[in-house]
């Protein structure tokens, strides 16, 4: 590749490395596998840079390559198509709302409002099934629109909605469980605390 093209590659493509690393980590789970995935993604991007069209978004181009590499490595293409049979987006959304209604009833929703969720969120995202995790990462962490996520993954926009909403609902459930457990712990601690003035 010419020096000019390499400079362009460095400026436009290599600059996306932190985003690709985060995306790879969300798919691979394991950090060492994620690093292999990142390296392979950039090698393929470099070799295929002539196919990159000026005006395209390099981050999305890299996400697409990264996902292809991951599927090829894991030979899990079949699993991706299986998950297209999700509930429709409206019912996924309604389930999240029903979950909130139940949480209002048992007090975990108001407890969650006052809690710092950051320690729980990374783990909750990592625990999501792969296809939902990818969608949450692309839309919520990387800021892609539904259409951009659909184009990046080569799936219909309806599939983006279904997987994203399911992923968010699962996250909501996990975080509400975190809030409930934290409430139980503090109640137990209160029950076992010595009462003032007790001898």
């Amino acid at each position: 590749m010419s020096d000019l093209r390499d400079r362009r590659f460095e400026r436009d493509v290599l600059a996306c490395l932190p985003d690709v690393a985060r995306f790879a980590r969300s798919m691979a789970g394991d950090e060492s596998d994620a690093d292999d995935l990142v390296q392979e993604t950039f090698l393929l991007a470099y070799r295929g840079y002539h196919t990159f069209r000026a005006g395209d978004e390099p981050r999305r181009w890299l996400f697409t390559i990264c996902r292809h590499v991951f599927i090829r490595q894991r030979q899990r293409a079949a699993r991706f198509s299986e998950l297209d049979e999700l509930g429709d987006p409206s019912s996924e959304t309604m389930r999240a709302v029903y979950g909130h209604i139940a949480a209002q009833g048992d007090g975990s929703a108001s407890r969650l409002d006052t809690m710092d969720l950051r320690p729980a969120i990374d783990g909750a995202i990592a625990d999501l099934p792969l296809d939902f995790r990818i969608m949450v990462v692309l839309v919520d962490l990387e800021g892609l629109s539904y259409t951009e996520a659909a184009e990046t993954l080569g799936v219909p926009v309806g599939t983006v909605r279904s997987r994203l909403y399911r992923g968010r609902r699962l996250l909501q459930e996990q975080l509400l469980t975190f809030a409930r457990d934290a409430g139980l712990e503090s109640a137990t601690a209160r029950d076992h605390a010595p009462t003032s003035g007790a001898l």
Binding site: L117, R118, I121, D122, I125, V136, D140, L141, R168, L171, Q172, L175
Partner: peptide
């Protein structure tokens, strides 16, 4: 919830 997730 979304704010917290995006903050991750």
């Amino acid at each position: 919830l979304l704010r917290d997730i995006r903050g991750a």
